[in-house]
Design a protein around this nucleic acid. Sequence first.
RNA 1: GGGCCGUUAGCUCAGCUGGUUAGAGCGCAUGCUUGAUAAGCAUGAGGUCCCUGGUUCGAUCCCAGGACGGCCCA
Length: 1007
Amino acid sequence: MTSACCSTASIIRPTRSASATHSSRCSISSTAATTPRQCRQEPPMRSSAPRSNVAFSLQEVPRRGSHIRASHPRDDRELKRDYRKTLNLPVTEFPMQAGLAKSEPRRVAWWQEQRTYERRLDRNADAQPWILHDGPPYANGELHMGHFLTMVVKDIFVKIALLDGKWAKFVPGWDMHGLPIELETLRHLGITDFHVIDPLELRARCKERAVFWFERQRDVRMRMGTFGDYEHPYRTIDPSYESVIVETLADLAEQNQIYKGLRATLWCFHDETALAEAEIEYEMKRSPSIYVRFPFDQEQRAALMERVGGPSTPLRSARDDKAVSVLIWTTTPWTLPGNSGVALHRNAVYALYDIGDEIVLLAEDLAAEALRERYSGAKKIAHVYGERLEGLEVRHPLFDRTAKIVLADYVDLETGTGAVHTAPGHGAEDFETGMAYGLPIRSPVDAAGRFTSEAGPYAGLRVLDANAKITDDLRAAGMLLREQEIEHSYPHCWRCHNPVIFRATSQWFISMDRNNLRARALAAMDNVAYTPEWGRERQRQMIENHPEWCISRQRTWGTPIPAVTCIDCNTSVLDARVARAAARRFAEVGADAWWSDPIERYLPQGFVCPSCGGTRFTAERDIVDIWFESGVTHLAVLGRNGLPWPSDAVLEGGDQYRGWFRSSLMTAAAIRDAAPYKHVVKNGWVNDEDGRPMSKSRGTGIDAQEAMERWGADVLRLWAASVEFVDDVRFGPHVIEQVARVYRNIRNRVRFMLGNIGDLPPDAIVPRAALGPLDALAYDYATRRFDEIAQAYDAFDIHAAYLKIVEFESEISALYFDAMKDPLYSRAAADVRRRAAQSVLLYALRGFLAAIAPVLSFTAEEAWQALPQTLRDAASVFELVLVRDDARDAASEERWKMLRHLRAAVSASSELRDFEAKAQLRLSPTHASALEPFTNEDLREALAVSQLEIAISSAFGNARMPGVVVSPAEGEKCARCWKYRELGADPEHAGICAECARVVRERLSGD
RNA sequence: GGGCCGUUAGCUCAGCUGGUUAGAGCGCAUGCUUGAUAAGCAUGAGGUCCCUGGUUCGAUCCCAGGACGGCCCA
């Protein structure tokens, strides 16, 4: 227990009386004289007690250290002699001020010139590959801090593998097709309707724009200090890549995995395209909220009565002239023209209420809320389970047709009436229900969101504008029970931010369940590791709930789906032979050819329509979903150029469970029947300092380039390591300032090591086996910490590595560096004791630079280049190897802790500082054996005191840590080394100790 | 509304399978140093471990409910 040893220390610690004795000696002597030098040294602005400008009075406590010189006025001349020049003070070109913003771009260029990354890859070429496969950022806009985090963490992993000797080739990639770029380009061109521009012209403009952003993002990404094959990145717009996309479509078509079908798809009528799930965002929207009657006519009413309870039903007793209707609730009045049914929940209780002049049917649980004030006077006249009502019909409130009552599981009893208006053409679930019941699929809305003639009186109106008119008509027809407005979250287009609608259109789909694709994808996950582990469950749910994958888009900037339409029968055909012809063609000249070539070029000999045998075809103009494009990166990049398939790891933000992680898994399961990666690592979201999200689409994200100019990439890289990147993290000036201080600590410790080993000749390096116990202790301590850092890296735990890095540099600085200053500075330059300490510093520096290089790449390289050439046995810090420790030595760790404790105890137990002190250690036999390797002088050196005595006795108890007693040092302060010694042995150097005098003489004779 | 994740000092984070005076770094305060000096060393203050219940001899840790924040979905 540490408390026991502390109390021991406090009992034996010299009390204030000891200090008082010391002080009184000072004050007496200080009256004698004050040297001019001392006067100059008085800091005028010290905040401590104001000092009179005359000599010390008897009452004043003098500044420590002043008494010695004062008590020996005869030494004035010696004191003036500048012994400082005879010391080996640290010298290095490695500046304290980093100036990262200026130096980093030069370092990036240097790495390029030196081909640092490629050279290390070559060196590791025969080793096991370790491949992190890059998920492509979208080439549109500036990179924000979310990008920075993902990109830098990837880079840290790559560099860890690299320094561990693995062939860690990283191929960066970009996602460069798609609607956002197309819209951006159109905006740039001032075009609102994309139909008016020639597709090839538009594609050329889009390409320019995509390439512009690619180059910009590539430069910024390199500016982050990331390594990768930037000369050969993969890009989804490259002919070779487009070819792979189409080749994959051919494979899927061959497997009959793709089909064309009518679907209620999310549709953006502003952009006139179908949207994938991943392309919508939920935003708040004001919508009408209306309760609408679907009336029963006489015949229908009779059928209802049968179901509700036969002839004896109380409904019979209700007056026949009272109208009966089922009440539905909707926030999208415009979907009513598409209505085909009313869905109820099988197990919910529905009741008929007489509310005065009419009878309404709705879920019992919701009646009070839905009927409001009319509920108080309502009379419940019957109730029945939903399933009893299946198959009944009601009248449409506006059109002269019927709607069928159906059952659906998604009907909820939280809001509305429990009776859900169902328009199969305007909702995904409605569509499923419609298909199940054979309801007509109406979608009387065109691509631009206007009603078609099928919508009768509403034809030509934009759907959202039609809400008001439809509501008016309902009111006029007496079908509107209640109306209000609500604010709710509603799907919007991720890019143009307009509300989206569901619309039934003809689209290409990848079937999830043909060939058991879904099941095979789930099975493939078994061989994948997930960080965090719960990501597996998240991923599983995403696959299980994956709807049919709509891969077609009615747009221009993308890779064409090489399908053809039979001119005779209008059948749409995706034939693998046609697709392969396209893949070959695109590989040579790019996908523009699809728009410029005659279709005959792609048709195999004797190609006929499978439906009607026709021979004339037109090329379809749909392009493929960009999630499909990025979903085949593993096919385009891995398994070639020496890269293995699958990759060892992928790392992206958590949104990619639904995005790229999923799309990659689906294509891999379909084509290779295996997962495209072995490990899925997720990184968190970057929030601002208040924990609020920084959204890229709303422009509140902090620009990575700007941040690097302000703080330097290395400080930001350290930030990435200082936070738990797996979780959501916070970013902002306050957080970065804190990290910047840690950075300065690290930098200064590196600087200390560099400064003290500059004159170490390689042949004077002392090997581990020849080190004395104290140096060996530091050596072993460093080795253990380096090993822990490497182990944390092995586990992808960058944050744990960061903590170990900080622990190491602050610990070794406080104990070893501080204690080594005396031998390093005051011993003869070539003294073996000094060489030993230098050797340990060199070892520690090498190991430390290797350990921090994955994170602090710029600083590690800068420090490595600041090493004297004679000690720099590698061209770059990235040639080094992570230090591992085979034999962990618990006794050594315990000794380190003991010394740390003793050092703290010396400082704590008196006002005496460092060499003013003489320490007495009070050791129990257990302590003594723990400290067995150390000589008295080793311990004296470690504790940086002038003298040290050791007392061993079982009377000192069994506390875990030894006690220590501190008293004033004996002798006088050596003007050179500052230790307290007998002075004056050398008459020419009367103010310094014998050892210093010898060093000074040697030095002078040497010069 | 549903699923998942998180909540430990001012900040960034440790705390292994329940028992510790709950730790580290940075910041802060104080002292020392001025031969790492826009640096270094030491000491100290600072926590109802989000809240409420429960299980247990004992809960930061397990269970339930809730609050707040985030992600994904509806």
